[in-house]
């Protein structure tokens, strides 16, 4: 994987250093990318993100990254993490902006159905019905670290997805045509998280 290079999409959405640290630790080349013209140079892209949905969409638009990402869609694997997963969807209850719409899903507020369900959903939680190759070598029902107040819900029967429970069932990871999304933070989910990122890098390497 020495020649593989991952682009971390930099759109001022916080927490990017943790992703860099994880990729450095795995030992894969990685660079921040905020110029849409440079997106073509990478074998795979990670869209990180923490923050608000509309801010993320405005910021992507301002940098020309919405058009840039749409232009490279289908040419290389993409992994959206947390808010980065949500922007791959059609829309979010958190804001009024449209998402990228690559995935047939909507982002909804987590319902605090009783006083034990706190929002944000913060902490380690099980991921069920995991799929390969992203979760290869990771036991089903393993714990990953989540921090979010909105979650992805999809009615699309065709969409390959994992589920987790907090207040209700939500989509904790999905894949469609090498577009991956994870609601949790693999960069902060210890060995399982690092394995997941390594699996994604292997996919990128294999598609070169």
């Amino acid at each position: 994987m020495e020649n593989t290079c991952i682009g971390i999409v930099d759109y001022d959405a916080g927490n990017i250093q943790s992703v860099i640290n994880a990729l450095d630790h795995i030992g894969v080349n990685n660079r921040l990318v905020s110029n849409p013209e440079h997106l073509v140079e990478f074998d795979g892209l990670i869209i990180p993100g923490v923050g608000a949905f509309d801010d993320a969409m405005y910021s992507l638009a301002k940098k020309g990254l919405i058009d840039g990402l749409n232009a490279i869609k289908g040419t290389k694997p993409v992994l959206g993490i947390c808010l980065g997963m949500q922007v791959l969807c059609e829309s979010s209850d958190e804001g009024s902006q449209a998402g990228l719409g690559w995935i047939n899903a909507k982002v909804k507020k987590i319902e605090a159905s009783n006083s034990k369900i706190k929002v944000p959903h913060m902490g380690w939680n099980q991921v069920n019905n995991t799929f390969d190759p992203l979760f290869e070598d990771i036991p089903n029902h393993s714990d990953f670290y989540f921090v979010h107040s909105f979650c992805v819900v999809s009615e699309d029967k065709e969409l390959v997805q994992c589920s987790s429970e907090h207040g209700g069932t939500f989509t904790s990871a999905f894949v469609k045509d090498d577009v991956y999304g994870v609601q949790f933070h693999p960069e902060k989910s210890q060995d399982h998280g690092l394995t997941l990122l390594t699996n994604f890098i292997k996919v990128c390497h294999g598609k070169k």
């Binding site: 916080g14 640290n21 989910s189």
Partner: peptide
């Protein structure tokens, strides 16, 4: 944090916006 792959919270002496933001970066 270069080798810490669980969440980490940092604090103490956060008295300016820029310093708070710099702990995240």
């Amino acid at each position: 944090t270069r080798k810490c792959f669980v969440p980490i919270t940092a604090g103490g002496w956060i008295n300016e916006l820029d310093y708070g933001l710099s702990l995240i970066s």
